[in-house]
Write a protein that binds this DNA or RNA. Structure first.
Lengths: 357, 357
DNA sequence: TTTAGCACTCCGCCTTTCTGAGTGCTAATA
DNA sequence: TATTAGCACTCAGAAAGGCGGAGTGCTAAA
């Protein structure tokens, strides 16, 4: 049962208006729209039908209409019109993107903060491995009596280090030997491929440095097994700027408790694998506390082996088009920044945008 | 003008009750207390006097009394009774403290989360250097064609690393030479002591690896100059659990915007240097948005060169005694965990606590 | 098929009333 | 002189009542 063009137009108008006002939309409001030239009565009839189809809802008899989750879904999948970033918006996004290439983790959290600020909603970021991690290079450095620094380079150009303090004295040459053994036998292996047998062999060949082996291995396996980095969630308080949470402080709190625990731990692993953008509308979400809450998330590529996810959390009534556009811009340019072998390049202005003051 | 014992008792009772109920305290409520054996009329007289002294306030004529900021101050400084952690509380704190010795930064943020959970209030953590940082050891590792890992160990056993990609090819022996030069000339120097002259000398001695010098130096100086790590702020939403923010979602949001920007950037640098605990009560705070908001913070030592700060943010009416006790427990045990040269040891149960199941 | 008109519904807002917790004062008591 | 009982008074917050207006659905006309 297809929608007529007029019905589509009306549905779209209702979502658009509701998104910006947060109040039920009445037939008159739509009739007043510039490119609508049929009367409010007609609209009322159509609205009745859309309601029957389950695309709209009525908070109470004498109120206007509100999109139902199904309505949002349809809107997102078919009706949503591309939001073009304004020149001003592009400019501030660009400014925001000029972040120093600090430590990776910090950068991700920085990005989250920016997105949150730009969308005026809570946002989160995660870095996920795209494929199984393997070790690329080991090194052991003497850093004082009894102090050894273990340096481990993983696929995807991640470098991890750990300071180990040992009561045992190990000579420089012992360390070299162990490093050589590790490099010879453990590089390019995934966590599963590292067997106990292999470890024994390494311990045997390690000579005087063998007490170090278990420490090194624990650390290595820990690094290899970690499928994704920390989830950086920021701007939670911005949710309170939204009218639906204004009075219901308790509700907002609930939403965040749930989000912090459940979603953030489960979502990133499960969801944004195939498409670049994902929408989770209201009840499509996992937990019932998040009934009126939706999530938009977007992937972006970081170097070879890693992919990042930016997500924005908001009321189901949020401006999907605008948020998608902003997220998209971020994702694209972040991707680009990381593409050129880790050397971030400033984002280019999109075409059609004049870059002069 | 000293307070009589009875006045002290009444003031203390008012703070204690108000802290747990968040409602103005009336004379009857105090008269009903077990160890109070004078009538509500007497209490009313005393309350009137305390009000005149500026230690109590009256929201409106026919309401009970609420402690004024000065009242809280007095309470904290003189009246507050040590809160003894219950066995249950100790146990869950201990459970909470069993965190893996992951990366340092992550641990700090973990601690923040725990404190927030335990106090049911927003919390933050920062790590600050106690003294000027110096480099202890440099190393350069070849990690593939054109990829070099720079490893830098700082005072206080911090280890930092950075992956550098260079178009220039550098041989293994060149790297060794440069590392040797760096170790010989830059260790034990603070950021200020590293002069341009010195850098030139290094560049001259570095031979084929000299193009690396500016990169290495940028990174080194950046590390040395950083006075404190990231501020980890969590559990913001818990503020909404407090009745004073229940309806005023806007207020809570404001508080957090201010906190995020102003306090968090200014406070840790300025405040918790001398004493182990610091209280910032209401209007003693910097920004006027934080008028009804207080902060309790506590230092703890991390290894040699670093010190950590845990802070808890809440309404001025918060349970200072309990929070101080919990923070203290954390601080003590975290300090202990880090004391033993970086090898975290599980916290000991406090005396008087039986450690069996 | 669309539209004008009209009766009806019902939320949100305002005002009013009412209740009860709490006060300050005065006069009696120990 | 310090304490207490008693009483009139105050005032915030809850409960109840009473509009007004936005919006609907339906009917009948264009």
């Amino acid at each position: 049962m297809e929608l007529t063009d007029r019905q589509k137009q009306i549905l779209r108008a209702i979502v658009d208006i509701y998104v910006s006002t947060a109040e039920p939309v009445g037939s008159k409001a739509i009739a007043a729209l510039p490119d609508v030239n049929y009367s409010s009565a007609t609209i009322r009839n159509e609205m009745a039908e859309l309601t029957q189809m389950g695309l709209l809802e009525q908070p109470h008899t004498s109120a206007g209409r509100v999109p139902s989750p199904a309505g949002y879904r349809l809107y997102i999948d078919e009706l949503m019109q591309d939001y073009r970033l304004s020149l001003d918006e592009t400019r501030s996004l660009n400014e925001a993107l000029e972040l120093k290439s600090q430590e990776f983790d910090k950068m991700m959290s920085q990005v989250g903060k920016l997105v949150s600020k730009m969308t005026d909603l809570p946002a989160y970021t995660v870095a996920t491995r795209r494929s199984e991690a393997v070790a690329k290079h080991f090194d052991l450095i003497m850093a004082g009596p009894g102090s050894i620094i273990l340096v481990l380079m993983l696929s995807g150009d991640e470098v991890k280090n750990k300071l180990v303090k040992l009561p045992v004295r190990v000579s420089e040459s012992d360390l070299k030997l162990l490093a050589a053994v590790l490099n010879a036998s453990l590089t390019d292996l995934t966590a599963e491929e590292i067997t106990g047998e292999l470890l024994e062999k390494i311990t045997r060949s390690a000579g005087a440095a063998s007490p170090l082996v278990p420490l090194v291995m624990d650390f290595t396996l820990e690094c290899l097994r970690k499928q994704h980095g920390d989830v950086h969630l920021t701007g939670q308080m911005r949710l309170l700027g939204q009218p639906e949470y204004r009075d219901a402080a308790g509700k907002a709190q609930e939403v965040f408790e749930t989000l912090d625990e459940e979603l953030i731990t489960k979502l990133p692993a499960v969801l944004p694998k195939d498409g670049p953008v994902q929408f989770l509308v209201g009840p499509e979400n996992v937990a019932k506390e998040l009934k009126d809450t939706s999530v938009v998330m977007m992937r972006f590529d970081i170097g070879e082996g890693m992919q990042g996810t930016i997500g924005v959390v908001g009321p189901t009534r949020m401006d999907y088009a605008k948020i998608t556009a902003k997220l998209g811009y971020f994702a694209e340019n972040l991707g680009r920044m990381f593409q050129k072998n880790g050397q971030p390049t400033p984002p280019a202005l999109p075409d059609g945008t004049k870059n002069e003051e």
